[in-house]
Design a protein around this nucleic acid. Sequence first.
RNA 1: GGCGAGGUGGCCAAGUGGUAAGGCAGAGCUUUGCAAAAGCUCCAUUCGCGGGUUCGAUUCCCGCCCUCGCCUCCA
Length: 478
Amino acid sequence: MKTLRLFDTLTRQAREVKPIDGSTLRFYCCGPTVYGPAHIGNFRTFVLQDVFRRMVELGGVATLHVRNITDVDDKTIRDSQAAGKSLLDFTQAWTERFHADCEKLDCFPPHVEPSAVAHIPQQIAMIERLIEAGNAYASDDGSVYFKISSFPEYGKLAHLETQDLDMGRTANSRSNTDEYEKDSVADFVLWKSRRPGDGENFWQSPWGEGRPGWHLECSAMIEEYLGTDFDLHSGGVDLVFPHHENEIAQSRCACGGDFAAHWFHITHLLVDGGKMSKSLGNLYTLDDLADKGHGAMEVRYVLAGGHYRRPLNFTLGSLDDARSALLRIARFDQALADAGAAPAPSFAELVESSAVYELGDLQPAWESLSDDLNTPEALGHVFTAIKGADAKSLDSEAATKWRCALHVILGTLGLTLPNPDTSADESEIPDEVKELAQQRWDAKQAKDWGAADRLRDELAALGWVVKDTKDGYSMERI
RNA sequence: GGCGAGGUGGCCAAGUGGUAAGGCAGAGCUUUGCAAAAGCUCCAUUCGCGGGUUCGAUUCCCGCCCUCGCCUCCA
């Protein structure tokens, strides 16, 4: 087993990640609210969680990865109604889209992906226990709230003091106009009584018709699939407060236990130096970027190209950079193959092998990843190693070893290489272009340089570039 | 107002109390009929600004400027 040190939000220090049960690393990630397509900011979180999981598995520890789907909340209800669809139809469609995007990014699907709607009874049962224990109370309108004053450790994760919370309350006028009836403005809702705007989206409960509050689903599903004590909990930084703080309060009061042993939060993505927003038009989805000619792997490279605890400035130009960088690695990989390297093992094969113990020149890259998941430093080491290696001079055994090591690092980052041969297939080349290219080749053979250059210019005007090789030529789209 | 993160070459981005990784772009060379592609080489006396501590600071401390996040349902 290899060690991985990771910064823990609660203790604010890097701590070794290791399974409580000694064999399987059990962790929970807050998943998407399925009311629209996820954007690259969301995917920064999911991609880094995926890198984390790959790191753990390659380090010799099995994982149990649980990630929820939030399919009932204000936004899903509101937008499903606007779309004229049932909540179920609406959220299922966006869940499918989310899965498709994750697949494009080569993110492993979680082992368990529970949905909030499918766990209403568990949530109600948890509320009942909280009321019994004196941690929650029902209001006259049939809503139920968690009583923050009943949990002294509230605020510990976010490092917020009670007085700060009080200030937040007075500074935020929205809270004062809250339509629900709470004892204290800081208390949060566990069960929301049915409202006219909810339509048919309500469930029966001991407190009347209504629906669960957002924070509760994670606590209920964690108890169901991971129990009262588990290894790690993760999400975007914005979830630290109040979402994860509330989860801790609910779960520890309802279940006992320590809840998550480690907290892994990913910092937000910036776009062009600022925050993303719909009004600025910089909330990119994978489809938006695909329309601009950028594949998901380029996106993944960019997202993995920054350290998860630092703000990462996304620009469209960085996708071009990523394409070039990936191609360069791909060419090196091809050079290894040309030197006689065996095909690179799959991720599963790497997990089964002891490849991680024989990394050679790429050992520093692994060390970087082991030290708080330093993905950018690891990539730096990859390029340094590539520069220092002369693939052509390696025998097939050495080339195979090198290639295997390279794919351990790439596999951890979840990067798959593009085809280094960028020339176009016969079938994509228009006949007219083929004809001109052949004429140029003939002119070249006849050493009629003037005609050859003129034909090359004509091809360029049509958007094609000719690349001469030793004994022929290939075509590439500009 | 409170808490927290960050400001490093044209762009992206690591890093360390001992004199700035890496990628992209750019330049040169090799190659080529000329190109393209590729490979190789070069490319920050300097790390937001001003002080301080130190033999020495980009790295520690203080102040200031700017950006970003959270302060009750946003990854």
